[in-house]
Amino acid sequence: MVDAEQLVRLLQATAGGDQKAFAELYTASSSHLFGLLLRILKRRDWAEEALQDCYVKIWQKADTYAPDKGAPLTWMMTVARYRALDLLRVKRPEVEMPEDEDGVEIGFADESSGIDPEARAVEGEGLGRLEGCLEGLQEEQRRSVLLAYYEGYTHQELASVLDAPLGTVKSWVRRGLQRLRECLGE
């Protein structure tokens, strides 16, 4: 488990231009960002490109991180996810979905999809609550939201994967999010 306090210190030192701290930050966090990028982008070359972009951005923007923005790894992974989405939108329209061209194996940490007990303990109540709220969604709503989150699918891609009309998929996503919002509260 990555030590959040240590990451905060490294991020702050990075903001001050400390290159050694930045290298340590990379060592401590890059596998998490890279796993996310591989999962969404599906191709190692794209994931590597995105990882590079992310850390250059983290180097530049480390000073905008404040501990009240959430855990540092969460913040960095959010940066990475947005980067992956942007890159996907630029690249995926032009290409076929790759058939594992680069030999990248993609998987979830817990393929069985249940929440592993350790993660639940670490994340505490928040995760349990989100999972509980997700379970409260209709099957199609939950699948749409999770596929969009983990695969970076657009509405069109969701429609094709779920074999449903575009309008239907849009409303699954929208209703799913609405119900999540109601369930999660403020």
Binding site: A47, T74, M77, L127
Partner: peptide, 14 residues
């Protein structure tokens, strides 16, 4: 809220 889903990304060393 959605960051709670991040733990399911499997770390991979670049």
């Amino acid at each position: 809220r959605l960051a709670r889903l991040q733990h399911r990304f499997k770390p991979v060393t670049p």
